[in-house]
Design a protein around this nucleic acid. Structure first.
Ligand SMILES: NC(=O)c1ccc[n+]([C@@H]2O[C@H](COP(=O)([O-])OP(=O)(O)OC[C@H]3O[C@@H](n4cnc5c(N)ncnc54)[C@H](O)[C@@H]3O)[C@@H](O)[C@H]2O)c1
Ligand SMILES: NC(=O)c1ccc[n+]([C@@H]2O[C@H](COP(=O)([O-])OP(=O)(O)OC[C@H]3O[C@@H](n4cnc5c(N)ncnc54)[C@H](O)[C@@H]3O)[C@@H](O)[C@H]2O)c1
Lengths: 240, 240
DNA sequence: ATTCAGTTGTGAACGGGATCACAGCGTTAC
DNA sequence: GTAACGCTGTGATCCCGTTCACAACTGAAT
């Protein structure tokens, strides 16, 4: 479950299972690799051309062993003493994560959150771009927001198919989420970022990243209490 | 790391370890319990007063065994045939997740994303409320946005201490995140929701939920490719 | 009263991600 | 040249969340 944290591959009814034919990175690995790359790219220009697992680990909040293990599984080798070549590593990660020809994404639901995300992602790197937005409200369609055109929902299928879009961001109200998601799947979307506070029920061969902010907040609250509160938890429970 | 969904307890340098005095739920358990409750509360008024593990599982995209196991660990019993009492269960979950006296949260960084979140959380349930916002920009402070007063950053310590606030949402630019987070810790915040795309380095007894949207998006893109690609990962990519 | 269908509760097995530990080696210093 | 340091690569291990499987049980039906 994922937003934080939590990643959620959803299959038809009960059991969750992802299966791919070839070598597939695990969900946490993809997350970490994505983070490694971002941190490497954010390195100051005058920093050395190689980096140690320790250093990268510190930048990413992991352990050095973890970093080495990850780089091992993508077959990237470093040199003792010098460490890993930063340029090369960025390239190697890209070769794992990015589609060679780039990938495009759409956003559905141009409300408060949708607009913030549009702004955020249209100023981002080009290998994964938000290229279209959709809304059901005629007030919102037709305009161009943050360089991204807003289409009527009815055009979804055509635009997605025409451009071979595979990734979708869902920021519609909870009540509409399942229905809209179904339409997106039908159009060809296979990877979802779902911000609606409702778990999507989608067919297999589909991946949903649940960005459940409410749940994440409750987690933060729970562990904040657990960590600072120290004691004070009752073990009393109730039943019918 | 979590983002992505993923939960991230960060300790000083390398090793991550959470330790609490008493019985502590695991991170995924807290997420699921939070979700169970939300789904139960969203049940139609005319639905039966009890619910089976199957049904709840379907609503939450998990398995029945999982639900039973979770309810077992919080010591909540159901009856064969009838299932679990919905009212009682909602109460039992609350007794686990919520602070008896309620919990308050602050948000720092009233930008695009911050405003969206303010709007979202001030219309939410009362056991966990956003009670104050902070920004460094004098243009933004002094006003009341969505029922939430925006203070100058300088007031952070006082407000947090005065109201015993333990949870904080971070929506400042990446460059400012670490510094602001440090100030929040100093003021007494122990649970974080970090939307800045930078892993926070915080002392032990602190919990960070990394809401790394970029990473989540790359995960969705990666698995979308992996799943629809059907076989090849390298070149196999079709057009519309 | 008795049977029966279907659900809960839970020990046990499983799987896989995180972590450990160390051998091997490249680099630098002298 | 060579010694020594410290980092990488990786088998092995650990740990914990997930899943299985089934006995116990409840309520309904007859
Ligand atoms: N705002 C936040 O900070 C926040 C935080 C967490 C979760 N969410 C969730 O994200 C979603 C959007 O939140 P928001 O605050 O932007 O709401 P919003 O009401 O501002 O935006 C919703 C948008 O979706 C559009 N819409 C409605 N039905 C649609 C349909 N069937 N097809 C296409 N578009 C449709 C509306 O016209 C509107 O533009 C909600 O599910 C909300 O629960 C929001
Ligand atoms: N907008 C999005 O959809 C989105 C998505 C993912 C992540 N993020 C991240 O969330 C953060 C905020 O994004 P945004 O789009 O709202 O940016 P924004 O520029 O609109 O808002 C940033 C706000 O933080 C305030 N600020 C700056 N420095 C500060 C400081 N030291 N103390 C307190 N406040 C300070 C600014 O005055 C501004 O109001 C960024 O880190 C961004 O990377 C945003």
């Amino acid at each position: 479950m994922s937003p934080s944290g939590m990643g959620v591959p959803l299959v038809e009814t009960a059991p969750r299972r992802r299966q791919a034919s070839v070598r597939l990175l695990s969900e946490p690995q993809v997350s970490r690799l994505s983070l490694y790359r971002r941190q490497l790219q954010a390195l100051p220009l005058d920093s050395p051309p190689t980096i140690h697992s320790h250093t990268l680990a510190a930048l990413c909040g992991t352990s050095a062993a973890h970093v080495r293990r990850d780089l091992m599984t993508i077959g990237f080798a470093g040199s003792p003493v010098r460490g890993y070549d930063v340029e090369q590593l960025i390239g190697a990660i890209g070769r794992q994560l990015d589609a060679p020809e780039g990938q495009r994404a759409v956003l559905v639901g141009v409300g408060q959150l949708g607009r913030a995300l549009l702004n955020y992602f249209t100023t981002r790197r080009p290998h994964l771009r938000l290229v279209a937005a959709f809304d059901i409200d005629p007030e919102k369609t037709g305009r161009v927001i943050h360089g991204c055109r807003v289409w009527p929902l009815a055009e979804l299928g055509e635009v997605v198919r025409e451009q071979g879009i595979t990734v979708g961001v869902l920021t519609v109200p909870a009540e509409a989420a399942q229905e809209v998601a179904d339409r997106m799947v039908e159009a060809g979307i296979a990877g979802f970022l779902n911000f609606a506070p409702v778990p999507l029920r989608l067919p297999a061969r589909t991946f949903v990243e649940e960005m459940d902010i409410t749940t994440s907040m409750e987690r933060a609250a729970y562990f904040a209490r657990a960590l600072v509160g120290g004691g004070r938890r009752k073990d009393e429970q109730r039943a019918g």
